[in-house]
Amino acid sequence: MDLIFSNAVNALFDPMTAAYAIAAIGIALHFGFTGLLNFGQASFMAVGAYGFAIATISFGLPFWGAVAVSVGLSVILAFLLGIPTLRLRSDYLAIVTIAASEMLRYIVSTTSAQPLTGGPQGLNNYSTEFYGLNPIPVGTYGFWNFTYSEREVFMRIVSWTLVVLFAIVLAILVRSPWGRVIKGIREDEDAVRSLGKNVYAYKMQSLIVGGLMGTVAGILFVIPRSVQPGNYGTQLTFFLWTMLLLGGASTVIGSVIGSMIFWGLLSLSDDLLRAGVDNGVITFLTNDQVGTIRFMIVGLGLMLLVIFRPQGIFGNKKELQFNG
């Protein structure tokens, strides 16, 4: 029981939770504030992960060079997605972004791209230089079930610092005149256009900035693990949407808290169900069926949330109406 509890607490502050939070902040900017239906945040994360890993492994770039490559690719991706769709009706963006992100996943996982992307096996061994930046001496830190190696501590500090940084950037942006324009676009883009604002340019800027957050999240996500093409399916995007809607799409802090609640609850429910199965309390499930239940919970949670509390936990009901 202690372990189950501490697993859940660990999940709250895991670097993975932080990475998801950053990517979700990106869609908060897209959807919550600009009204863009980006269903391809997974592709921005994939660009971060693959751009960083390939630049490091195949081109031998230093850490910051690899980060710069990812960022550059992310901007290009945003243009590719935005140019055909941002002038069209909003559901076109949804279809194109989701199609593009699946397309990207097929491309990186094809065996013909194996020399570069590792194909279905993915990539690893690209984090050495990042950990080289670690000023924390070798050792074990923490107490009880919360002990971490110096790398784990470093990773946590870096990722949560970035979460705070991006949350602040979002908060400043949405409270600025720039934020006023994108919120206006969310409400009615024709009205904003009639007031002399270049709506297309603003949507593009929002897409780029939110996408960049996804890309940084993608880099953070793969530093402590390997790059696996299977991770960048539509599932990833839908998880992010669930977190975003959980916290409240039109709030700054919502995506962060949403991500923490999401992973905390998932860890808790998973561990409890597995414990139940192991102790014979739950007899109608096997352990591998438990693995599918978490997804059913996420799906059901998403449905109930959108129906009964579309503004999320922290959102003001007046602040978010879904348009369309």
């Binding site: 400043i172 942006l173 600025s176 005149p177 720039w178 934020g179 006023r180 324009v181 919120k183 206006g184 969310r186 409400e187 009615d188 024709d190 009205a191 904003v192 009639s194 007031l195 002399g196 604002k197 800027q205 900035v209 007046k318 602040e319 978010l320 109406q321």
Partner: peptide, 27 residues
């Protein structure tokens, strides 16, 4: 086309032209 989830004052401010803060960097 009033922008419903903006305040009345924000609606008004949106109308002003050549605002430096409407550039994403200056923002």
């Amino acid at each position: 086309k009033s922008l419903n989830l903006l305040t009345v004052l924000e609606n008004m401010r949106l109308g002003a032209q050549r605002q430096p803060g409407e550039s994403i960097f200056a923002a």
